[in-house]
Design a protein around this nucleic acid. Structure first.
Length: 333
DNA sequence: GGAAGATCCTCCCCAAACGG
DNA sequence: CCGTTTGGGGAGGATCTTCC
């Protein structure tokens, strides 16, 4: 059995496509390549379940258990507790399950309440990722987590923010906000910025026999699943062609490494509409010092593609990644 | 013994404190 | 002002427990 898989039982879900809560959830689904607005959802295929995100924040997981759909939702969202509410900590790390068993009453589920509550917990980086998805029709996955290899110590799940079909191939992007210190380290010291180590873990995981081919076939299956779901719920848009091109490529697809780093030099608005001018000034200052203090130059010297984004993109902005290597030792000018 | 549930652990993001 | 450190919580795979 492969370590890394992407799959979901679409055929069982088909029997429930007209159930109100299922419809309500998928009504909010907005395919990559289109703006999701304040409360539109993205769908990611995981290993046996789907995850729904609003602005990159997980709203609900949908799995098939004993032949029926089952939701798992954070208690905060079920209760409609928004960020900053005094009861917030009471709900930490707690989840509720809802089953749509045959013959039993459909439990009370207020999807709008879940989504509105979850939106308030989305951080700036997750919002930035959703802005990228809105202009990247080939998006295959968000928050991709790699399973531990059997020989690895500890329970590890390193993550990459975006998985993108670029034509026939798969590219990976790590998104970071300009204010994130992981993009930086003092340029006259040997220690590389943390993000370099993060990318190295990814490349290291892939650098095993079967790694890239497992990832390729997992995402072929994810693309087929997304296409089937899109058809089932009547979704159209540029993602369909992008997914189809990738799915049709099959074994011809390549896994492109290393991942690129996309830097958000702005902060995306929240649904509450509160202006974020003080944060924006902070972002601007960091964007400037990122260049002035050679942090960008350092990442490039390591062989990493760095793509700064200065404001919410209106059109496709992620470039085609090409194969490369991360330098073991930073080449100094 | 296998599947489902519950809990654990690590990675990652974020904000605030800290120190040069 | 700039970069590092620290601690909390979400996400999700890993692992242990329960149950049939």
């Amino acid at each position: 059995m492969p370590l890394f898989e992407r799959k979901f039982d679409v055929d069982v879900l088909r029997n429930y496509r007209d159930v109100a809560v299922i419809k309500a959830l998928f009504d909010r689904w907005v395919l990559p390549g289109e703006d999701a607005g304040p409360h539109g959802l993205r769908v990611a295929v995981r290993n046996g379940y789907l995850n729904f995100y609003v602005k990159g924040q997980s709203v609900a997981k949908l799995s098939i258990r004993s032949g029926s759909p089952r939701f798992e939702v954070h208690d905060k969202y079920v209760a409609g507790v928004v960020r900053g509410h005094e009861d917030e900590s009471k709900y930490a790390q707690k989840y509720t399950s809802f089953s749509l068993d045959h013959g039993t009453a459909i439990p009370m589920m207020d999807i709008a309440k879940w989504v509105h509550a979850a939106e308030t917990y989305a951080g700036d980086e997750k919002r930035f990722v959703d802005d990228l998805v809105a202009v990247t029709a080939g998006t295959l996955d968000l928050e991709m987590a790699l399973p531990a290899r059997p020989d690895a110590r500890g329970r590890v799940a390193p993550r990459m923010d975006l998985v993108v079909a670029q034509g026939q191939d798969i590219g990976f992007w790590e998104a970071k906000c300009a204010v994130n210190g992981e993009l930086r380290s003092e340029h006259n010291k040997p220690a590389a910025p943390h993000v370099v180590d993060q990318l190295r873990k990814y490349v290291g995981w892939m650098d095993h026999d079967g790694g890239p081919s497992e990832v390729r076939s997992a995402y072929s299956e994810a693309a087929r699943t997304l296409l089937a779901l899109a058809e089932m719920f009547g979704k159209t848009g540029p993602a369909i062609a992008a997914w189809q091109t990738f799915a049709d490529a099959g074994d011809a697809a390549s896994v492109i490494l290393p991942p690129g780093v996309v830097v958000g030099n702005y902060c995306s608005p929240r649904a509450d509409g509160v202006p974020r001018s003080t944060e924006m000034e902070r972002y601007l200052a960091h964007a400037n010092s990122f260049l002035k203090n050679e942090h960008e130059a350092r990442l490039k010297r390591f062989g990493i593609k760095v793509l700064p984004i200065d404001c919410k993109p209106a059109a496709s902005c992620l470039c085609i990644l090409v194969p490369g290597k991360i330098a073991e030792v930073e080449p100094r000018p």
